[in-house]
Design a protein around this nucleic acid. Structure first.
Lengths: 249, 249
DNA sequence: GCATATTCTTTCAAAAACAATCAAAAAACA
DNA sequence: TGTTTTTTGATTGTTTTTGAAAGAATATGC
C-alpha cells in the first residue's frame, strides 16, 4: 500500500469513528506501528487530525462533542440575532462603519437590501460586502494576518476623511468601571477614532462579554450604545449608565 | 505496446484505483520499471497525476475536462511562469506594489521567502499575501465588486504616502502606438500614479495582450519594462522602444 | 502512591524505490 | 540500405521508507 493511500485510509477511519487506535490502524493497513506513528505525526503536522496517546482523534474543529459544539452554534445564533437587530438601525442613505470581528460580520446579510455606503477594516467583511453588492470602502493600512483587520498609523490617517451616521463595533470585555476593552492596542486605536467620527455608536456584544476586561480600553461605558440579547441576565446596572438595547431571542 | 497507449493505460489504472504502484504498472504494461518511471514523470509534468514514492496517485481535486480547460490552464501556466520571473526581481528589503489582477496574483507564492513590504489594491491578493505571512498594506478606498480592486479618489490620495522599489502591474492591451491600456479608467488612474511612485516598473503580460488596445491608456510603451514569455512570437519591435524581458517556458 | 503495562521517542540497519548513466534495440529518416 | 535519432532496459550508487529494538514517558490497576 502506497503512502498516500495509507494516509487516506487512516483519515477515513479516524473521521468515521471520531478516533482510532494504533493497533486498529496497524490491522487495517498491514503496516508496522512505527509507520503508523510516523503517518499520524505527518497527518497531524498537516492539520488533518489530532495525535493522542494510543492513537489519533479528529480535530475538534470538525465535529466535536455535542456539548461543546452546541455552545458554539448557540453563540453564533446569538450573534446573528444581535447583528440582525443592529442592522435595523441602518437607514437608506446612511454611511456606516462596520468594524472587523465575527459579530459585526453577521450583520452583512441584513444590510443587503439597503442603499448605503459601508466602510470597513475587516478583510473577511470586505469580500462578503462586495459579494452582496454593497457599496464598500476599505480602510487603507497594515493588514494584521491573525485577525484580518486593517490597523496602524495609515489607517488612522485614512479614517479622518470619513464621517459616519452609524458605527458598529465588536468588543471583548464590558464592565462599568473599565468600559469597553479589546486585546489589541492597534485595533483599539481604530475603534476609538471611529467612535469620534460617528453620530450614533453601537457596540455589539453577546452575553459572554459582560463582566470581562481585556487589555486595552477604547471607550467609557457611556460613550456608546450596547446591543446585546436576552440571556436570562438583567442589565439593570448598565441601563443606568448607558443606552442598552436588548433583543430577545 | 506503444508509448501513448501505455500512457492511456497508466492513467486509466490510476484514475480507477486512486493510486497505482510501479510494480502493478510493470505487470500490466510489460514494460520495465525505468520506462514506467519515465512515463510517470512525464504524466506528472503534464499535470495528469501526482508522483508519489512507490508509484502514482490521482491529483487531488482534479476534475479533468481536457478540451475547454486546456486553453485556460495553459494560459494560467504561462501567467505563472511570467509571475515567477517577475518575482525574481524582488530583493530582500524591497517595498513593492502588486497591482490587482490575475497575473500579478500568481506572483504571491514566489514572494513568500522574501523579507519585503507589499502594498496592494487587490482584494484576492490581500488574503493570499497575509496567508503567506507577508507584511501587507492595503490601499484604502472604494472596492469595485467586479474586479475586487480598490480604486477612487481616496485610493489615489492614499497612494501618495508610499514610495516603491518595484511595482508589478497587469495590463489588457499593449501596442507601440497606444502603449499600455486597460478598460477601467479608475483602475488606470491608480496604475498611472503608482508608476510615478516606483523606481522600477514592470508590466506583466501574456502573449494575448500584445497588439491589443483597451479603453484607457495609463502609460506610454517606453515608460515601463515588460515581462512576458516566449510563445513563438518575436518582440523585436518592442525591444527598440522598451526593455522587454522574455522568459522561455 | 506504587508497580505494572502500554505507548512513545530515538536510533539503526535492511529493504525498497529512486535518479543518473549507458549501451542496445527500435524507429525514423534520408 | 545505412545513418541518425529516439526509446528502452539494465546497472550503478544514492535516497527514502520501513520495521525492529531499547530506553523513556505515560497511563492503568490495585
Amino acid at each position: 500500500m502506497l503512502t498516500p493511500e495509507r494516509h487516506e485510509r487512516i483519515l477515513e477511519i479516524v473521521k468515521n469513528n471520531q478516533t482510532a487506535s494504533i493497533k486498529q490502524l496497524v490491522d487495517v493497513t498491514q503496516a508496522s506501528e512505527s509507520t503508523i506513528r510516523r503517518d499520524l505525526d505527518e497527518l497531524e503536522r498537516q492539520g488533518h487530525l489530532r495525535r493522542v496517546h494510543g492513537g489519533a482523534s479528529i480535530k475538534q474543529s470538525a465535529a466535536d462533542e455535542p456539548a461543546m459544539k452546541d455552545k458554539q452554534t448557540k453563540l453564533q445564533e446569538e450573534k446573528r440575532a444581535i447583528a440582525s437587530y443592529a442592522a435595523s438601525f441602518v437607514k437608506d442613505g446612511d454611511s456606516i462603519f462596520v468594524d472587523a470581528g465575527s459579530t459585526t460580520y453577521e450583520m452583512i446579510p441584513f444590510l443587503k437590501q439597503k442603499d448605503i455606503i459601508v466602510v470597513t477594516n475587516g478583510l473577511d467583511h470586505l469580500l462578503a460586502l462586495t459579494d452582496h453588492g454593497i457599496r464598500t470602502y476599505v480602510l487603507g493600512g497594515l493588514v494584521k494576518s491573525r485577525t484580518g483587520a486593517v490597523v496602524g498609523a495609515g489607517a488612522l490617517q485614512n479614517l479622518k476623511q470619513y464621517r459616519f451616521d452609524n458605527c458598529f463595533m465588536g468588543v471583548n470585555g464590558i464592565t462599568l468601571e473599565d468600559g469597553f476593552t479589546t486585546p489589541d492596542p492597534e485595533e483599539a486605536a481604530i475603534k476609538q477614532r471611529t467612535l469620534q467620527l460617528s453620530r450614533e455608536r453601537f457596540i455589539l456584544a453577546d452575553h459572554t462579554k459582560f463582566g470581562e476586561t481585556s487589555f486595552t480600553q477604547f471607550a467609557d461605558i457611556h460613550e456608546a450604545d450596547i446591543i446585546t440579547n436576552d440571556n436570562g441576565t438583567t442589565y439593570m446596572d448598565y441601563a443606568e449608565k448607558t443606552n442598552i438595547k436588548v433583543v430577545t431571542t
